[in-house]
Design a protein around this nucleic acid. Structure first.
Length: 443
RNA sequence: UCCUCGAUAGCUCAAUGGCAGAGCAACCGGCUGUUAACCGGUAGGUUACUGGUUCGAGUCCAGUUCGAGGAGCCA
């Protein structure tokens, strides 16, 4: 009978057996402290020389980090015991080494990014990475739970696609027999087909962008959930978004309290995530940014915040805007020219479209991009022509508007950016188990 | 693609143009409450690569490679 570390508190005074790996070890004379990981947590196992035979004590004293083992001992509650969740430790009675590990490269001291990324296959064992990936799993589970509970059906969209939805420069090209195919950048166009069969749908999977971006917010492969809703205006879509995001954050706060604590994330900064989120129009946001720019005394910041109406926001603009709110903020009504061809223009004001980005607080920036889609076939065709897109490739997409077209809206949410925000980490690469970056395809 | 910074022991980093160093990890020893323990000892080097300046280069110069941060683009 094997006990898991998360269940230790239910076995105080009992003899239990753990299976795991040696996370860290220190000794003090006739005493050895072993931090043992079992995948569910970390527990301190204490070996007193007088409690075990000579061979066991010698083994423990020399056991290398990350050796696999089975350990049996009495569970004790002890305030001094470190670990995850901590507070409980094992007085070891017996120890079996399954494999004595070779010298482990990742030690208890600090390491550089390149080294850690080269050792990502081992790095994920570290408590910090373990905590982040736990939160990631919670976020993904919460996304599905909320959508499933609210009448959405998950319909997978293809990864291998014939053409781009939004330009062709950022596509990964792959061979497709005698032809070429591209890795999907979005499932949205297929989602739009799916809503006419299922009304509310979402796709959830990896997305690929061959962008030569070298920033803390970019991966070339990332996970995105894309809900799409029939009979839905932009205003209604924003309500869906704020409810979903709030549910995700609240679920993580509830289920990953110890992980967030391990990450040093202050739960107070996430606690008030509840609808409604503030909304600001692009017009007002530009005016606000100009004020901020005028008020800035830093010359470099002044330069970065420079903006004129019609420009898309850069990272410094998003960052400055989010500092004004303690909740995520919607920016609506972007200029049509900087957004995708399929976004519905505002009636009487075609230079702006029914689009909305959701910017996460504390400078984390865009985690959602969404819009109401053009439902009129003639307008859609015109937009395709205006942008010199190949009409033939979009034949099926235009047909969706010819057989019972309805107002509809949808959005895409980036999982790694959302996880990075919730965890309060610097870089999205830590929010992915094996991140793919501009110069990183190993391991 | 552009801008800035960097590459020295397994890891993190020092070293005024003048003998290649420390901490951690490893190995040996000491210590019955460690939290990245502490104390003593041992071992560990093609200073990213190529060329140049110099009596002498880890250090200065040129080029190359790799990496980090940022911009643009985006979720």
């Amino acid at each position: 009978m094997v006990t898991r570390i998360t269940e230790l508190s239910e076995h105080i005074g009992e003899s239990v057996t753990l299976q795991g790996w040696l996370y860290a070890r220190t000794d003090k004379g006739k005493l050895v402290f072993m931090q043992v990981r079992d995948g569910t947590g970390i527990a301190q196992c204490v070996i007193f020389k007088r409690d075990v035979d000579e061979a066991t004590f010698e083994t423990a004293l020399r056991l290398p980090q990350e050796s696999s083992l089975t350990v049996t001992g009495i569970v004790r509650a002890d305030q001094r015991a470190p670990g995850v969740p901590g507070g409980y430790e094992l007085s070891v009675q017996s120890l079996q080494v399954i494999q004595k590990a070779e010298e482990y490269p990742i030690g208890p001291k600090e390491h550089g990014v390149e080294f850690l990324m080269d050792n990502r296959h081992l790095w994920i064992r570290s408590s910090r990475q373990w905590a982040i990936l736990h939160v990631r799993a919670t976020v993904m589970r919460a996304i599905r739970a909320w959508l499933d509970r609210n009448g959405y059906i998950e319909v997978s969209t293809p990864i291998l696609t014939p053409a781009a939805a939004e330009g062709t420069t950022n596509l990964f090209e792959v061979g497709y027999f005698d032809d070429r195919a591209y890795l999907a950048q979005t499932g949205q166009l297929y989602n739009e087909a799916d809503i006419f069969a299922f009304s509310r749908v979402y796709c959830f999977g990896p997305t690929f962008r061959a962008e030569k971006s070298k920033t803390r917010r970019h991966l070339t492969e990332f996970w995105m959930v894309e809900p799409e809703v029939a009979f839905c205006t932009l205003e209604q879509l924003l309500e869906v978004e704020e409810q979903l995001v709030s549910y995700i954050v609240q679920t993580a706060l509830k289920e990953n309290a110890s992980e967030l604590k391990l990450l040093g994330r202050d739960p107070a900064k996430l606690a008030n995530m509840a609808p409604p989120f503030p909304r600001i129009t692009y017009d007002d946001a530009v005016a606000k940014l100009k004020e901020l720019q005028a008020a800035s005394s830093d010359a470099e910041q002044k330069q970065l915040l420079d903006i004129t109406w019609g420009m898309d926001f850069g990272a410094p603009h998003e960052s400055a805007l989010t500092q004004l709110y303690d909740k995520p903020v919607f920016v609506t009504g972007f200029p049509s020219a900087v957004k995708a061809f399929y976004m519905e223009p505002y009636p009487g004001r075609p230079e702006v479209c029914k689009s909305a980005d959701l910017l996460a607080p504390e400078g984390y920036g865009e985690i959602i991009g969404g819009s109401e889609r053009i439902s009129d076939p003639d307008l859609l065709l015109k937009r395709i022509h205006d942008q010199n897109l190949p009409e033939a490739a979009y034949k099926w997409y235009i047909e969706l508007r010819q057989y019972g077209s309805v107002p509809h809206s949808g959005f895409g949410m980036g999982v790694e950016r959302t996880v990075a925000w919730i965890c309060g980490i610097e870089h999205v690469r830590e929010a992915s188990p094996f991140p793919r970056l501009l110069n990183r395809l190993y391991p």
